[in-house]
């Protein structure tokens, strides 16, 4: 059996929503270089809808795939819905992750929550 599912490899080889949003409404960063995974998520939000989302990731294939999938799952969705994204949903959408790589999906969930917190900080009126 391969290390990762085809879905993981697809998102790793062809990550969706890669990049930076210069005038992002919310930016979230989690992880640290020491442990080997860093994810950064950029959100563009209009009228409570995530109009655009981009990510940058330093990490293993499952970290890249988790970020890619997480951005796909929240793109075009209301902020309230994005706040409910769980790491489990990310992992399931990827057809599963090896047990010792589940923390990558946790990082993706946290990065998005972080970015949304940043958004609320910058836009207190949106709360």
């Amino acid at each position: 059996m391969a290390l990762y599912s085809e879905k993981v490899m697809d998102h790793f080889r062809n990550p969706r929503n890669v990049g930076v949003i210069e005038d992002a409404d919310g930016v979230g960063e989690v992880g640290n270089e020491k442990c080997g995974d860093i994810m950064k998520i950029y959100l563009k939000i209009e009228d409570g809808i995530i109009e655009d989302v981009k990510f940058e990731t330093f990490g293993c294939a499952s970290a890249v795939a988790s970020s890619s999938m997480a951005t796909e799952l929240i793109k075009g969705k209301p902020v309230a819905e994005a706040l409910e994204l769980t790491n489990k949903a990310v992992a399931e959408a990827l057809d599963g992750l090896p047990a010792y790589k589940m923390h990558c999906s946790v990082l993706a969930e946290e990065a998005i929550k972080n970015a949304l917190e940043d958004y609320y900080k910058k836009h207190p009126e949106a709360k």
Binding site: V18, V20, E33, I38, E56, T57, F58, V64
Partner: peptide, 8 residues
Amino acid sequence: RGFSPVWR
């Protein structure tokens, strides 16, 4: 490096 926040 093209999508690494560390590299950026």
